[in-house]
Design a protein around this nucleic acid. Structure first.
Lengths: 206, 206
DNA sequence: GAAATTCTGGACTAAATGGTCCAAAATTTG
DNA sequence: CAAATTTTGGACCATTTAGTCCAGAATTTC
């Protein structure tokens, strides 16, 4: 029976993935959970869920199969954990962006939405919704929450004093941004996409 | 040496899939190629490429493995054939729609784009671009052509006398429609999506 | 009706899949 | 240093994967 009193370990990342507390005696974890989770994210992002194999994952994460399963339980497990972590980080980044931008925050956010960090891989969550939402309710739910947060951020940017009034417009704009991600994935050159986006922004914000 | 003179068979469908000419003596094909191709399309549409197994396909198409491979060559083979056939049919349908509609053709086309026959499965080509375009250039190319055709149709509807001038607007609108497909897939109720679309149309067509 | 030709079903293969398990090594606390 | 505890690597498993192959049935032309 461990004492459970001392404040535990270096678990600063607080992902809700593994319930295992690595306290007391015994060999400590040799990997940083947030780090390997991000590695898994990159692979899923690049290849999609079905096309990613266990070997792809473990080798990218630098984990043995045992460590993998003991830490995340299953392929589904890492996937959901990675997806949640992605959503959280992405929303956070957009929030900061909108707070830092003083003039024309709408254009700034839209441009960022349409040119995600992932580059041609697009938005991880949009990809996952397309691939999995119809068959995995949990993914659909994460997707809906994510989209909602993005829309709220946009509404806030459009009309800081009365965000509710801009909700429809915000949704339309986010749909527009999402659509451009598909254009990008199909190989349409970035300049053309930027042009399209600029024209749309002009129409939307008179 | 067959004579090669008589006009061949009942091959009215003209899909570019199988090079096999079923002329001369011998048992004729027991299935309609276009029909089974459509069956394959439905499965791919519902499940995606990776998630669809050979057994899924053959059982949906009502074909034995031998017939399947002799007719289509590979899983990739049917997939590409089905995708091309889908694109052709979809573009044709939109063209007819835009020609039949006299007043507000833009709204009509957009609404149709955002509410595809596939229902919650969305647009087959958008799904495939998201899943495969980054790794399969052929799919990307088919996707680009498809999108281009849709955009041209929209530009024509927006500005019948000078379509070129409306190309950017057309692309923005198609991006908007594509985005709403993702919203739909994530489970956003259709009424909300319609509302969003109506608002956007109003902004775009003053 | 006979020969020719093609389709059909099912058995088969080799590889890859997600997941399990255990002995050994490593690192902690006391 | 010793005991306790946990990670680790790799072997292992049953299942599924896309794709091949062949003997027999079916249907054509002549």
């Amino acid at each position: 029976m461990p004492s459970m009193i001392k404040d535990c370990c270096q678990s600063n990342s607080e992902t809700q993935a593994s319930a295992k507390a690595t306290c007391g005696p015994g060999r400590p974890r040799a990997f940083d959970e947030a780090e390997v989770l991000d590695a898994a994210l990159q692979v899923f992002w690049q290849q999609g869920y079905e096309a990613t194999s266990l070997d792809d994952l473990t080798s990218a994460m630098g984990l043995s199969r045992s460590s993998f399963y003991s830490a995340f339980g299953s392929k589904q497990g890492v996937f959901i954990a990675a997806l949640k972590s992605y959503s959280q980080a992405a929303v956070e980044a957009f929030k900061e962006l909108s707070e830092q931008t003083s003039d024309d925050p709408v254009a700034t956010i839209l441009t960022a939405l349409a040119n995600p960090n992932g580059g041609p891989r697009g938005c991880m969550l949009v990809n996952c919704i397309t691939e999995l939402a119809p068959h995995q309710e949990e993914v659909a739910e994460i997707g809906r929450q994510h989209l909602k947060r993005i829309e709220d951020l946009l509404a806030q940017a459009i009309s800081p004093n009365d965000p509710a009034s801009a909700s429809v417009k915000a949704r339309a704009l986010s749909a527009l941004a999402i659509g451009t991600l598909t254009l990008r994935k199909s190989g349409v050159p970035p300049e053309q996409i930027s042009g399209t986006l600029d024209a749309a922004i002009e129409l939307f914000t008179p």
